[in-house]
């Protein structure tokens, strides 16, 4: 136990950087986002996009995410200065959404991107913003992230527009092209999957209400 404590203190020592309160003027540039990421409730990466060389290696990126998660998963403050960066975040059930920018960046711009990101994911997951649903629709989530921000430039900050561009798959295969067996198999599967999902989400909700 003691050993653990010591380790923890060493970790914080390495990562504490003093905040530069003097913002300074930003070089005019449309590149405003350094990273966006979604973590689960253990701080594991589900999606991460880094747009510049602040964290050049995967190892540094993961270390940053871990530390960021440790700092933010308990407090619901929505904004934090961390390692000299401004991070805005939002969480729901077991997902944590982060948008990271320079400490001099306009926080409201970062927040607008975060909200666009969250809202579009929420629409894609039909308001069911949790890890399981996210993983079921990971393709659409990747596409949404791609429509949100292109290499650090905000591409679209309106969640409706993002969802429209992602154009999630509704019943896409025309019925005529399927055999009867396929249809029964598919719908049977879907029905049972749907029941499962309802049960699972009810279970989750009870669980979370108990755990909180």
């Amino acid at each position: 136990m003691n050993f653990n404590l010591l380790r923890a203190s060493i970790d914080t020592r390495r990562h504490v950087k003093t905040i530069n309160m003097d913002g300074g003027l930003l070089e005019p540039s449309p590149y405003s986002i350094k990273a966006i990421t979604i973590l689960d409730n253990d701080g594991n990466r589900l999606l991460a996009k880094y747009y510049d060389e602040t964290f050049p290696t995967a190892k540094e990126q993961k270390a940053f995410e871990k530390n960021l998660f440790n700092k933010t998963h308990r407090a619901n403050a929505e904004i934090i200065m961390f390692e000299g960066l401004t991070c805005v975040y939002k969480s729901n059930v077991d997902l944590f959404f982060y948008v990271v920018g320079s400490s001099m960046e306009n926080e409201l711009i970062l927040a607008s991107v975060l909200h666009a990101f969250y809202d579009s994911i929420s629409q894609i997951l039909r308001k069911n913003v949790e890890k399981r649903a996210l993983l079921d629709n990971l393709d659409a989530v990747f596409l949404a992230a791609d429509e949100l921000c292109d290499q650090g430039i905000i591409l679209e900050a309106d969640s409706n527009a993002i969802v429209q561009k992602v154009a999630i798959r509704n019943e896409d295969i025309p019925l005529g092209e399927q055999t009867m067996a396929q249809i029964t198999a598919k719908y049977g599967q879907q029905v049972s999957a749907a029941t499962d999902r309802v049960l699972q989400s009810a279970k989750d909700q009870i669980k979370w209400s108990l755990l909180k």
Binding site: D22, G23, N76, E78, I79, V88, E107, L108, A111
Partner: peptide, 17 residues
């Protein structure tokens, strides 16, 4: 409420600087 905090935080950061 959270958004309000965020605004105030920005303001305060400016004032400190």
């Amino acid at each position: 409420l959270n958004k309000a905090y965020e605004l105030m935080l920005n303001v305060l950061k400016l004032l400190v600087a």
